[in-house]
């Protein structure tokens, strides 16, 4: 089964995302911020990355930019969890190489639907 890297500095959001994805049968590895995620992504290959945007120690957009530069993550789906209603963050994310986004607040069903969109 596919393995997903879930990145969020908020423990409750991270747990909710991980719990939902695990319930749907995915393997999930959690990371607490961008720097943590980057280390984990270097040590292990992930099939998809779901990341929060606003985080200390490397935000989601920098994380996506750094990951895209790695040979293993050239084509990996990367989704941003964002509350920004404005297009600013989305555009920055797209420029960094994000595949798409999930707008907070979202419920588990919306999350799974979006994950299925990129994971098949």
């Amino acid at each position: 089964m596919a393995t997903i890297l879930a990145v969020d500095d908020s423990a409750s959001m991270r747990q909710m995302v991980a719990f939902t994805l695990k319930g749907a049968g995915y393997n999930v590895v959690e990371a607490v911020d961008g720097a943590d995620a980057l280390n984990k992504a270097k040590a292990q290959a992930f099939d998809c990355v779901v990341t929060d945007v606003n985080m200390p120690n490397k935000d989601g957009i920098e994380l996506i930019r750094d990951l895209r530069a790695l040979p293993n993550y050239k084509f990996t789906p990367m989704l941003m969890l964002t509350t920004e209603a404005g297009t600013d963050k989305k555009q920055q994310g797209k420029d960094a190489g994000a595949t798409g986004w999930i707008v907070k607040p979202f419920n588990p069903d919306q999350l799974l639907k979006t994950i299925k969109k990129v994971m098949g």
Partner: peptide, 16 residues
């Protein structure tokens, strides 16, 4: 840092 804390609370409270 202050913004991020507010932002996380907003995101979480919306979701939960």
């Amino acid at each position: 840092t202050i913004f991020r804390a507010a932002h996380s609370i907003k995101g979480g409270s919306g979701t939960f």
